[in-house]
């Protein structure tokens, strides 16, 4: 059901930009998420195959940091891979290991994360000695970048080699993007090349603008969450 962002306490860091693009919002986790923009679902799916930018800031995410964080998470049944790699979990969440002492948990595209629900319920400051929550939903915006031009577009603002044959699905780059620290995760959507960008929420509107500028030459444009969900539902490469 359509909802207006300002009727909810929790608001995306770029809700004004999305509203100006004719967004239709729906409520996810007490936040209005732009499901579609003015172009509509079908056009946005087509656009995102080439190059699309979507705001996922309303979706579920979290993280833990500290000298026992990885062990504690493993004890909670979280699968953790190598540093700067992401592992997909049974419930559709993804866990990115950011350091020997930190992991970030990204929920699914529907806005849920059974894993985070469970981990958060099991945490207490003394019970999880050495593992402390990182307020990812507030510290960071979360954008999805999709489409075959994604890596070339990102090369205009990011100095890490993100080309698909060098930066595999699930790989994490913690680097500088348009002169801001950011986390980039390769996250293909079905057969479509894709990246997550997670960075300073206070700079969300700056990054949104910078990305659109970088996307222009490829005809890239913002899209709604529905387009991202639709691409993710397509069958990926065997």
């Amino acid at each position: 059901m359509a909802v207006q962002p300002a009727t909810l306490n929790r608001r995306s860091f770029v809700y004004r930009e999305l509203a100006a693009l004719g967004a239709t919002f729906r409520e996810v986790n007490g936040c209005a998420v732009a499901a579609t923009l003015a172009a509509g679902r079908a056009a946005e799916i087509a656009a995102a195959r080439d190059l699309g930018l979507a705001d996922l800031s309303g979706l579920r995410r979290g993280g833990y940091k500290g000298w026992t964080a990885l062990d504690w998470l493993r004890g909670q049944g979280v699968a953790i891979g190598e540093n700067n790699m992401t592992l997909k979990q049974g419930d559709g969440s993804r866990v990115a290991r950011l350091a020997d002492s930190e992991a970030m948990i990204l929920g699914d595209l529907a806005g849920g994360s059974a894993l985070l629900d469970r981990v958060e319920a099991g945490w207490s400051i003394t019970g999880a000695l050495g593992a402390y929550p990182v307020p990812r939903p507030e510290t960071n915006f979360w954008f999805a970048i999709a489409g075959r031009h994604s890596d070339t577009m990102l090369a205009k603002i990011c100095g890490v080699d993100l080309r698909p044959h060098r930066f595999p699905d699930g790989a994490v780059a913690q680097t500088s993007v348009a002169r801001m620290s950011a986390i980039i995760i390769r996250h293909d959507l079905g057969a479509t090349l894709g990246y997550d960008m997670i960075a300073d929420s206070a700079a969300a509107s700056y990054m949104w603008t910078s990305l659109q500028d970088a996307m222009d030459e490829f005809g890239g444009r913002p899209v709604g969450l529905d387009a991202i969900v639709a691409l993710a539902a397509e069958t990926g490469p065997a």
Binding site: R11, F13, R16, K156, I157, A178, R179, M180, D200, A202, A203, S205, Y206, S210, D213
Partner: peptide, 29 residues
Amino acid sequence: GRSFEPERKTAMHHRHLELGARMMPAGQW
């Protein structure tokens, strides 16, 4: 080049503008 100048805005940024605030830079903010 594009001369990126990162800008940070607080959650109330637009409310200040609506109230007629003169904004000034404080670092990136």
